[in-house]
Design a binder for these strands. Structure first.
Lengths: 219, 219
DNA sequence: TGACTATTCAAGTAATCAATTGAATAATAT
DNA sequence: ATATTATTCAATTGATTACTTGAATAGTCA
């Protein structure tokens, strides 16, 4: 019976290990990139702007906590999210931080919300409206990420190319843009750009990982 | 535009703060007790078996991270969960740990699952069967926790009193027991005890916090 | 084979964190 | 007022963590 107390402690310690693995901005950023698809250490170091050795150590820590998996192919080690439940965990973390930390609210309000006064489009709304052919779904992430999976039917124009390739978007239809996650700036910027050109545009609520995690169609 | 990069980093740092607050077994245990209802520092120190000063510091950290709130009444400071989203976060953490850390699986298998070979009863199943009056819902937590909220219709017999008060349970009906959370040992022990007495008994999937968080009726 | 590359490891420093102790607050009770 | 109680604060110790640097592995390519 007193063994059960120590089991409880041991379980909490395991949960704490997982939380500890998430308790660093660099690792959260690594996880966000990994949520788009698998990546090598070097690519991740590049994306996050940290040194390769540092990225390697952070990734190792994520591996130990069971948040990511790795696979060696030739001289490259490819890391990937262990599980879709990790996406759920990251979203829960975001939700709690957003509703209870005023600092987060302030950052979001100041730097993101001002660009986008409209409510984001929910998964359900996008699904039904795109079935009726009423919207264009726009993926503004880099092509590599698009190729590893995107909202079924979405077209890919990276944010950097948007000005130049804006004609590829059907006129007269609302555009729903998305990128990596709920606070991914690319989608905010794309929406602002499109509106400046007189187009109707809104953001999707959440990015590709959330869409996939909801079990919705990915191509 | 480069300001957006630093905003992104700042956001991840805020999320990391929340994760860091969860990254200690003592704080997770405090959160589990707080999920049952509000508690004073001394009571929490007692429940978790840590010193008052230590509990105070951990609680302060949870407060800074926005996971709990506090309210001063007389000489007592009452802490409580900031939000039901914290319950979601804790459950996500559990889920990830359970599916990706073999150590957790092992602990659960060895110390809990052996006592309970049957699947737990889902929220939906309990709801429909208890509406038809087919089950007795048993809350095995201490009366103080029961009084702060329990599954609507549940009767309260703390585990310690179960042997003595087993006659209070209607005969010939299945009993569904629950306590503080998914791994709360009280419910496992109660089910084992009831089965030893020849009664039909199963565990509820999750404890009161999960039930409440699912928006189900609490009295 | 030898040069090269991606990744990991090991060592060191600075920073952060957990827990203890004893003192400081602030409310209540006598 | 004085004593008592619940909680927090401050200072300390030992342990853990982050990041850098340079070396070690282990695979590829010429």
């Amino acid at each position: 019976m007193s063994k059960n107390i120590s089991v409880k402690k041991a379980l909490f310690e395991q949960f704490a290990q997982v939380a500890k693995a998430m308790a660093h901005a660099n690792r959260l950023e690594l996880l966000e990139f990994l949520a788009q698809g698998e990546r090598t250490v070097e690519v991740l170091a590049d994306l996050t702007g940290i040194s390769v050795a540092n990225a390697s150590q952070h990734l190792r820590q994520l591996l130990r906590a069971g948040l990511v998996g790795s696979r060696k192919e030739g001289q490259y080690v490819h890391y990937s999210l262990a599980d879709l439940s990790v996406v759920t965990l990251m979203d829960s973390l975001r939700t709690v931080a957003e509703s209870n930390l005023s600092e987060v609210d302030h950052l979001v309000d100041t730097y993101l919300k001002t660009k986008d006064s409209l409510e984001p489009v929910s998964h359900e709304e996008l699904l039904s409206r795109s079935r009726e052919g009423l919207v264009t779904v726009l993926d503004v992430r880099p092509p590599e990420e698009y190729e590893q999976g995107h909202v079924d039917g979405a077209i890919n124009i990276p944010l950097a190319d948007l000005k130049r390739r804006i004609d590829e978007l059907p006129r007269g239809q609302e555009v729903v843009a998305y990128c990596r996650g709920p606070y991914c700036v690319l989608a905010y910027d794309a929406v602002a750009e499109l509106r400046a050109r007189g187009m109707e545009a809104r953001r999707l609520d959440g990015g590709l990982p959330e869409w996939r995690n909801a079990g919705l169609p990915v191509a």
